[in-house]
Each structure stands twice: as structure tokens, then as C-alpha cells.
């Protein structure tokens, strides 16, 4: 890095990249917020109003969607980390077969979300192989309804399947920063495997765990495609409800309210995790 102080011209360099992003994302956020208050309306009758908010906040169905999406966000994020963490620990250092395992684990990362959804749908559908095997083994009498199930386990399953490698990458890079000396020292001082896990690996991997938790939550909470093909008939995810409200029913102002709710929830959760990270890492993160 250059030690000399740099002038204003440096900021000009940021315009193409950061400017482009801020322009597009910023304008879409701006439209979402203003439209939720009735401004820039499609119908042309632009006027400030909080009617859409009042109407939507009292709406039982919208609340169901928000709760459902929150549930999907938390479960997907927790599930993915639970699956990825042991793998990350195991893959931390090289060994026989690990190269192969690492490549194998990574495959879903390279598979688009929609394709992942389809791959899993194929397995868990009513006459899918999972049900067939379970029936053949006499574990169940008739096939289980795992696709479009009322709880949303199908969606969680797809999210976990698709995102384990993504979270694994983030966890691996934070585990890689743990020095062997530290572990040897702990072992030398008499720490057992569980203590090493609890006192060294988990605390030191915490920043990585939190970052992946945030990213996973955001992905699953705002998801449209996966829920729309594998989610329950009711309630739709909030993103799905928003899109239907806008495109099918042409109620853009109401959709904007839902959009603001998604953005706000995303921001609040991110902020909460960031605070948590500060608390956990003692303000270094």
C-alpha cells in the first residue's frame, strides 16, 4: 500500500464500480420506499399516504408470509452452518482423500439455485427415490409429503444442500487463520478434543460463522425462486407475495411496503449480527 497521502482524485476511481452499484441499487431502494408511501405511483395518482402501510400491517396473510420467511431464514442459516462446520474442521488440514472430498463437497456451489431446487425436488417428490427407499425398507407405510410441505422443510433442505459449500468456504478461511501452535499449546496444557473445540475452534471461527449466518439468512429470507417451486401452498414467502402483489394484482404500492419490510428486516438482522460479532470478537471484527 502506498504510504503517501492521496488526494481527491482517488475517489474518481471509485465512480465506475461503486457508483454503478450505488446508482442502481440506490434507485431501486429509493423507488421502493417512496412508492410504499404512495409516491411515484404506477397509476399516476402520486400522493403521500400511509394507507398502504396501515392496510398491510393489519393483514393477517402478510404477517404469515413474514413469519414464514423469518423461519426459513433462521432454519436455513442454522442448518447450513451445522452441516458445514464439521466438514470445515475435518478439511482444515490436508490428508489422504481430502482433495477428492473437497472437490466433491464444492459441487453444489457451482450448481445454480434453481437447478439445485430441481435436483432435490426430484429426490423428495411423492414418488421420488427417498420415499421409494423408505417404503421399500418398510420404514413408512406410504410416501411422505416432503415437497410443498406445509412447514417448509423442503425449502430448508434445498437451501442447505445448495449453500453448504458456500458457508464451508467462509468457515474454512476463518479456521485457516488458527495456528497449529495454538492448538498444540492447548493440547500440551492438557486440553481435550471437546475443550479445544469449545475454547479454540468455535471462538476463533466465530467471525466466519457470523458472516455466513448473515449471508445465509439474507438469501433464504428474501428467496423467491426456491420457495415458489418447493415451498408450501400457503403461506407464500414474503418475496413471492411481493412479486405476486406487484405483477399479478398490479398493486405496486402494497408490494413496495412488502419490499421495504424485506429490506428493513435484512438490515436489522445484519446489524444484530454485526453487534454480536463485535461482542464476540471484542470489537476487532
Amino acid at each position: 500500500m502506498e504510504r503517501q497521502r492521496v488526494g481527491f482524485s482517488t475517489y474518481l476511481f471509485l465512480i465506475p464500480g461503486v457508483g454503478f452499484i450505488v446508482l442502481f441499487i440506490g434507485s431501486s431502494i429509493f423507488i421502493t420506499i417512496t412508492q410504499s408511501f404512495g409516491l411515484f405511483s404506477v397509476t399516476g395518482t402520486s400522493q403521500f399516504t400511509i394507507d398502504h402501510w396501515v392496510a398491510l400491517l393489519g393483514d393477517r396473510e402478510s404477517l404469515d408470509s413474514v413469519l414464514f420467511s423469518l423461519k426459513m431464514g433462521f432454519l436455513s442459516s442454522a442448518g447450513t452452518i451445522l452441516f458445514a462446520f464439521p466438514l470445515a474442521l475435518f478439511l482444515r488440514k490436508g490428508g489422504t482423500g481430502k482433495r477428492f472430498l473437497a472437490s466433491l463437497v464444492k459441487i453444489p456451489l457451482f450448481i445454480p439455485a434453481l437447478v439445485s431446487a430441481f435436483l432435490i425436488i426430484n429426490l423428495i417428490s411423492y414418488h421420488g427415490i427417498v420415499n421409494e427407499v423408505l417404503v421399500a425398507l418398510n420404514l413408512i407405510n406410504r410416501p411422505l409429503r416432503m415437497l410443498n410441505d406445509r412447514f417448509g422443510w423442503g425449502v430448508v433442505g434445498i437451501q442447505v444442500w445448495k449453500n453448504v459449500p458456500f458457508v464451508l468456504l467462509i468457515l474454512a478461511s476463518s479456521l485457516a487463520s488458527i495456528r497449529d501452535d495454538t492448538i498444540d499449546a492447548a493440547r500440551n496444557l492438557g486440553a481435550g478434543a471437546i475443550q479445544i473445540l469449545a475454547k479454540i475452534f468455535i471462538p476463533l471461527a466465530m467471525p466466519g460463522i457470523l458472516v455466513s449466518a448473515i449471508l445465509m439468512f439474507i438469501k433464504a429470507f428474501g428467496d423467491f425462486a426456491i420457495t415458489s417451486v418447493a415451498g408450501p401452498v400457503y403461506p407464500p414467502s414474503i418475496a413471492l407475495r411481493m412479486r405476486n402483489t406487484a405483477s399479478l394484482f398490479q398493486e405496486w404500492d402494497k408490494a413496495a411496503v412488502l419490499g421495504v419490510i424485506i429490506i428493513l428486516t435484512t438490515l436489522v438482522v445484519t446489524w444484530l449480527y454485526a453487534k454480536l460479532a463485535e461482542f464476540v470478537t471484542g470489537g476487532e471484527g
Binding site: 461503486v18 423507488i31 411515484f40 449471508l215 411481493m242
Partner: peptide
Amino acid sequence: LFMTLVLLPIIMPGMVVALFLSRV
């Protein structure tokens, strides 16, 4: 701050951006 702003397209919920960017 700029490093975080760069991640906005990944962080922001895709459908919200899609719907209202389409208005723009």
C-alpha cells in the same frame, strides 16, 4: 464503507431489487 457498498447487489434481497429496478 466502499468495500461493503460493493457487496450491495449480493446482500440486497434479489426480488426487491428486481421488482423496483424494473420500475426504474
